[in-house]
Design a protein around this nucleic acid. Structure first.
Length: 351
DNA sequence: TCTGGGGTCCTACAGCCA
DNA sequence: TCTGTGGCTGTAGGACCC
């Protein structure tokens, strides 16, 4: 050691923007007649068909309608709701507009899905609340929509913060807020804790994030494995040093489809698979990628899901080669009962 | 009674090879 | 030559996110 002090890095300021009920808000914006009505976006917009809720507006949420819920269930809970199909192109166009605006605030932006983004505002010489107000105004001008914003020393806390005051809220989180504001929250509020982990933690008598933080590291690692145990230990303490990812390359491309009725006809399953192979190979070529591994996924009527994969000798973007590999995979699956879903994924890319 | 689609990452395990 | 070991790769499944 030469006695040189460590350089002093400025404490990070990460801002998370989350659009409020995004798909529903876009639909309401372009169809003013929907104002005040419960609106549910999902599947083909027909609650009599298979599909789940992508987004419900706040009016529909009052009736218990939630994302991920089957459309039929949503319809039972709220029969007067307006059901609309997902129009990805329209939402992507609005997404592009608000993200372009965000990049004018800070060039260090991480794109997370269609309705969220993180910004590193460490270098911005504007107070937190002021920058949040500027972003809200800008997004409203660009899109006519509202968003919720969280600002914190890292992305984990920024994400939790943006969720605390929805819709149209701003929450600023300091390091000192971990004990008072993070720890009392239910475990599901922690990013990365889903239904399985929640049930497991509850089985250990843990209900709040603070109770995870009070649990010893080795206990968490015994219950959840080395990597995820460590993640829970650190995340529950508000620790997250991960940088924003400003650039991203896809690692796989997939297509899958659920039949409206479960299918026992091999010809129909094979024909559907061939169609999906065409779509993924078209996308592969559009992106100038070549891939090596083909995976076929079958979900049976009882929801049991199996996958079979084949890695080719070399990289390819040929529809014919991908189809041959996909059918070789399909042949290895015992189609002894009706099928509800068929899918194909290609991965292991070479640009 | 239901449970989409498009992704990522992790874990466990098996086979191959040095 | 035989055996054990550890790394790498491929495969399958699961959890999670939006």
């Amino acid at each position: 050691m030469d006695g040189t002090p460590f350089p002093e890095f400025p404490r990070r300021r990460i801002l998370h923007v989350d659009m409020d009920a995004f798909f529903a808000a876009v639909e309401e914006r372009r169809r003013p007649g929907l104002a005040g009505n419960p609106v549910v976006i999902g599947g083909r917009g027909d609650p009599g068909q298979r599909g789940v809720v992508s987004t419900a507006n706040y009016e529909a949420r009052k009736y218990g309608v939630r994302s991920g819920m089957p459309l039929r269930t949503a319809h039972r809970l709220c029969p007067q709701a307006v059901f609309l199909p997902v129009d990805h192109q329209a939402y992507a166009a609005v997404s592009l507009r608000f993200k372009s605006f965000l990049r004018t605030v800070s060039p260090i932006m991480e794109d997370v899905g269609i309705d969220e983004a993180y910004l590193d505002i460490t270098g911005c010489d504007v107070p937190d609340r002021q920058i949040a107000a500027r972003i809200k105004d800008g997004i409203r001008e660009q899109t006519g929509l509202t968003c919720s914003i969280g600002i914190a020393p890292n992305r984990l806390l920024a994400k939790v913060a943006s969720d605390l005051e929805k819709p149209d809220g701003v929450t600023v989180f300091g390091e000192g807020d971990v004990e008072t504001r993070l720890w009392p929250l239910r475990i599901r509020k922690l990013y990365g804790v889903g239904p399985k982990t929640e049930a497991c933690l509850q089985g250990m008598g843990i209900e709040t994030i603070g109770q995870i933080a009070a649990f010893p590291l080795d206990g968490l690692q015994r219950a959840f494995g080395r990597s995820y145990g460590l993640y829970l230990y650190e995340a529950s303490r508000g620790v997250d040093e991960s940088p924003l990812m400003t650039h991203w390359e896809p690692k796989s491309v997939s297509r899958e489809t659920t039949f409206q009725e479960d299918v026992g006809n091999w010809q129909l399953i094979a024909g559907t698979l061939a169609g999906l192979v065409r779509e993924v190979s078209d996308e592969l070529r559009e992106d100038s990628h070549r891939a090596k591994t083909v995976t076929v996924k079958i979900r049976f009527m009882d929801f049991r899901t199996v996958t079979r994969a084949k890695t080719l000798a070399g990289f390819t973007d040929s529809e014919e080669e991908i189809r041959r590999a996909a059918f070789a995979c399909l042949k290895r699956i015992d189609l002894d009962r009706k099928v509800r879903l068929v899918g194909v994924r290609i991965s292991h890319f070479q640009k």
